[in-house]
Design a binder for these strands. Structure first.
Length: 424
RNA sequence: GGAGGGGUGGCCGAGUGGUUUAAGGCGGCGGUCUUGAAAACCGCUGUAGGGUUUUCCCCUACCGGGGGUUCGAAUCCCUCCUCCUCCGCCA
């Protein structure tokens, strides 16, 4: 959420920034509604002030047993004033809802260093690491490898759930678990605090991180009682500190969280229909940071490096791209995607997305901090990034470590977690 | 699922319709005293919005969320959330 005062003072700046993202927004109408809102607010507050002072006067008169007809007159006047206030308040509620709706649907303003562009084709590559492996045979897709080794079962998953589900079996299931443990161990050693949060959350949490109200169609929802399944650990973990005022000493806060994630993948029909690249349910280890505003861009760099570290240790080739303005997520001010090399597809595919949301989520979720020896509060900056998506890491291992005979070597760092060095 | 008891500022905790402008305490900040510190004593103390305009003041809202009664609600009513205790059921 953007600061309403900032929008009021700089409508042109906001408009220009959001146009870079492909949003065309009419601020004229908003500004006139907002002006009406303030007018109404001033009127109501004035009337409330009058009622408060007269009510106190009534109490005073009653105590001194003064002329009772005068009291009756004041009471009936105030009854009348009360009715007026009530009807104005009703109007105010309506207008506030319109203002809030407008603001809720505005995306974050991109950071100046974000490349301007229309869509993902204009993302800018920042760096590469590692060399794509060379095979003296035709490398297979992970779904073929998985099926041949008997470690991924798509057909039976379709029977028990549907498409975009998979059963991990035997060493496949163990590899999934090994990756989770390896990543959690790595990140906790770097000072991230491990959390395992609720996977079902309430509406306010989804609003706090920006999934609602705009992206309801992407979410799985359960009714009675109403909950949403988390699409990423970002949601419950960022909301840990919703409506809190932290002290400066608490910051920065680093969390690492392994959770299953649930996404409808509406609008991606026909994309990645085979394999486990795009599933309704997948595991992910997520990194979440709460930091002081002046540190957040440094923290984005180190967050991205922490995610890259996983791929370096697994010896999987990857590249880092800076998302352009047109490809940036709704709540993000700047995002680096990490893309891992997949021999089966002959290209780099997203395996992590590291974002600085600045105060966009913090304002929505009301997460503030107080500086020492300074009055008032400020919003924290929040960041998060996958460290990493488990399923896609597993895909990358199967495809990059495959051998001619169909077996798959286990990356060295995973051998202690797997208890063996080859999957066959 | 049944019965009962709670939710008040950074924390503890009083407050059952009107000088409550949320008592009191703890913590924190500043000061006096002191060689220094402690103790003691004195003063200050939240958030958001609006106005005024310069940091002086004024107004409004906030006592778990929402709604209602009333001239007036932390206080009364309705409803939801949540925590605790006991019973039942349960991995």
């Amino acid at each position: 959420m953007l600061d309403i005062k900032f929008i009021r003072a700089n409508p042109d700046k906001v408009k220009e920034a959001l146009e870079k993202r492909g949003y065309k927004i009419d601020f004229e109408e908003f500004l006139s509604i907002e002006e009406k809102r303030l007018e109404l607010l001033r009127d109501i507050e004035q009337k409330r002030a009058l009622r408060n002072s007269v009510s106190q006067e009534i109490a005073f008169l009653k105590k001194s047993k003064d002329d009772s007809s005068n009291i009756d007159k004041l009471i009936s006047e105030m009854r009348n004033l009360g009715d007026q206030i009530a009807s104005l308040e009703q109007k105010l509620r309506e207008i506030e809802e319109r203002v809030q709706n407008f603001i809720f649907f505005l995306p974050n303003i991109p950071h100046p260093t974000v490349p301007v562009g229309k869509d993902e084709n204009e993302n800018v590559e920042i760096r590469r690491w590692g060399e794509p492996p060379k095979f003296d045979f035709e490398p297979m897709n992970h779904w073929d490898i998985g099926e041949i080794l008997g470690i991924i079962d798509f057909e039976r998953a379709g029977k028990i759930a549907g498409s975009r589900f998979a059963i991990m079996k035997g060493l496949g299931a163990r590899l999934e678990r090994a990756l989770i443990n390896f990543m959690l161990d790595l990140h906790t050693k770097k000072g991230y605090i491990e959390v395992f949060p609720p996977l079902l959350v309430n509406k306010n949490s989804m609003i706090g991180t920006g999934q609602l109200p705009k992206f309801e169609e992407d979410l799985f929802k359960v009714a009675d009682p109403e909950f949403y399944l988390i699409p990423t650990a970002e949601v419950p973990v960022t909301n840990i500190h919703r409506d809190e005022i932290l002290s400066e000493d608490d910051l920065p806060i680093y969390y690492v969280s392994y959770t299953p994630c649930f996404r409808k993948e509406a609008g991606s029909y026909g994309k990645d229909v085979r394999g486990i690249i795009r599933q309704h349910q997948f595991n992910k280890v997520e990194l979440v940071k709460f930091v002081k505003p002046e540190d957040s861009y440094e923290e984005l760099e180190s967050l991205t490096q922490d995610a890259e570290e996983v791929l370096k240790l697994l010896k999987l080739p990857y590249r880092v791209v800076s998302l352009c303005t047109g490809d940036l997520g709704f709540a993000s001010a700047k995002t680096y995607d990490i893309e891992v090399w997949l021999p089966g597809q002959g290209r780099y595919r997203e395996i992590s997305s590291c974002s600085n949301f600045e105060d966009f989520q913090a304002r929505r979720a009301n997460i503030r901090f107080r500086r020492k020896n300074k009055k008032g509060t400020e919003f924290v900056h929040t960041l998060n990034g996958s460290g990493l998506a488990i399923g896609r890491t597993l895909v990358a291992i199967l495809e990059n470590y495959q051998q001619k005979d169909g077996s798959v070597l286990v990356p060295e760092v995973l051998i202690p977690y797997m208890g063996l060095d080859i999957i066959r």
